[in-house]
Amino acid sequence: MSDNLKELSGEGVSIWLDDISRERLRSGNLAELVKDRHVVGVTSNPTIFAKALSKGDAYDEQVRDLAVRGVDVEEASRAITTYDIRWGCDVLRPVYDRTEGLDGRVSIEVDPRVARDTRRTIAEARALWWMVDRPNLLIKIPATEQGLPAITAALAEGISVNVTLIFSLERYGKVIDAFYAGLEKARENGHDLSKIASVASFFVSRVDTEIDKRLDKIGSDEAKALRSKAGLANARLAYALYEEKSGTDRWKALKDAGARPQRPLWASTGVKDPDLSDTLYVDELVAPGTVNTMPEATLEAEADHGQVRGDTVRGAYDDARAHMAALKDAGVDYDDVVRVLEEEGVEKFEASWKELLDTITGELESKKAGA
């Protein structure tokens, strides 16, 4: 039998799991995925934690202790989420050591309610970095306009960063510049650049969802023919921009000082449209030096019937540009699409964070009553 995930890894794609939970950690499932499914990293977000807290009894003991101590819900949320992330970092530590820090990374996101507040984002990043206290941690900071200087500030202090919620090519260019600025300041501050990691999470399926909705509204045959291709085109052009920026003197100077590249990470790779192949955003985004973070369903689909055909990105730049031009001609406003996606992304994570806090509040109250 072919090992599709091994082949994918062999093409230079790091396979990360887009999920974490206390039960997954407690049962040894994460360790099994590392061993059997070539998983070399983990990402989390508020939605994932809200889902984890709502199921099973894995958090009961910790919540009971927090209730006895009388902590408020904000402190409880940090205690619960950082516990999982710290444990995840420990599970992935052998991968981190084996890859000399390239992989074995686990991500935790700053409170999404501060996504448009630079100072609070920086403060949250520092607090989470201190609380988890693991070298293979990544702090997720949204790529909002206010998040860009926070990315630079965190990196300047030696904090490794996963930049999340990137939708537009223009914003991605600014993210790369913020990464360079952070490393330049880190070097000035005396940090070892080889110890600082960063990935840039470029969202894929949500782009198709929003653009396809607009194409369906236009309704012409020409518009319908453009469906479900924008997410790939946008991501491929992001990789082209990554390559372009990697050839600059600015990056070469940082590389000579020991810096590692900020790898493109394909996020939102679970297919939303049931008519599409469930491995579309994996098989069609194979390129060296990238990360693909997958929900478990996508991971298992790729293992079962993925089609790894070598690099599917670098030979497709011209087609990607042509597709984006055709979308513009059809009347799709790209700038408005990515603006809406960023706003919705922040709002969705805020809603999930509120759901998480509400769940924890209910758990704390029930444990107090049962004490």
Rank of each mutant, 00 (worst) to 15 (best):
E188S: 04
R171K: 15
L215Y: 06
I176E: 10
I141W: 08
L183Q: 04
E210F: 00
R134P: 11
D208C: 04
G147S: 11
F167H: 14
E244T: 12
G182Y: 08
S201C: 09
D216A: 07
I211K: 02
V204F: 03
L226A: 11
L155A: 05
I141H: 12
G147F: 02
L241T: 12
A225T: 09
K229W: 00
A181V: 02
G190I: 02
S160K: 05
K213E: 15
A178C: 05
T152Y: 05
G190Q: 10
A156V: 03
I196T: 10
G231F: 02
Y172K: 08
K195T: 15
D133R: 09
L169T: 08
L226F: 05
A153M: 03
E157I: 01
K217W: 03
I218T: 15
P142K: 13
I166A: 07
A223H: 12
A235R: 06
E188A: 06
A186D: 06
A181I: 02
A154S: 13
I151V: 14
L138W: 06
L165A: 04
A240L: 11
R171L: 04
G158W: 01
S198I: 01
I141K: 09
L241S: 07
F167G: 09
I211Q: 09
I151Q: 12
L138I: 07
L241M: 13
Y242V: 03
N162Q: 10
K224N: 13
G219R: 09
R187G: 02
A238Q: 10
L138K: 04
L226S: 08
T152C: 09
E145L: 13
G190T: 04
A200M: 07
D212S: 07
K174I: 00
E157W: 01
A200G: 10
L232D: 06
S194I: 06
L155F: 07
I159H: 05
I211P: 11
T164Y: 09
I166T: 10
V199N: 04
I139H: 12
F167C: 10
K224R: 15
Y242S: 12
K229E: 14
A200N: 13
G182K: 09
R236W: 05
S220C: 10
Y239C: 07
R214F: 00
A156K: 01
H191G: 05
A230I: 00
W129R: 14
P135K: 13
R171Q: 14
R214P: 10
T164I: 10
I176M: 13
I218Y: 07
A181K: 14
E184A: 04
W130H: 15
A233N: 04
L137R: 09
W129D: 15
Y172C: 02
L237Q: 11
T164Q: 12
D192T: 12
L137S: 12
D192F: 07
V175Y: 09
F202E: 05
E210S: 06
A238L: 11
N136V: 12
N136G: 12
Q146K: 14
I218C: 09
L165E: 07
E157S: 08
F179A: 04
K217L: 03
K174V: 00
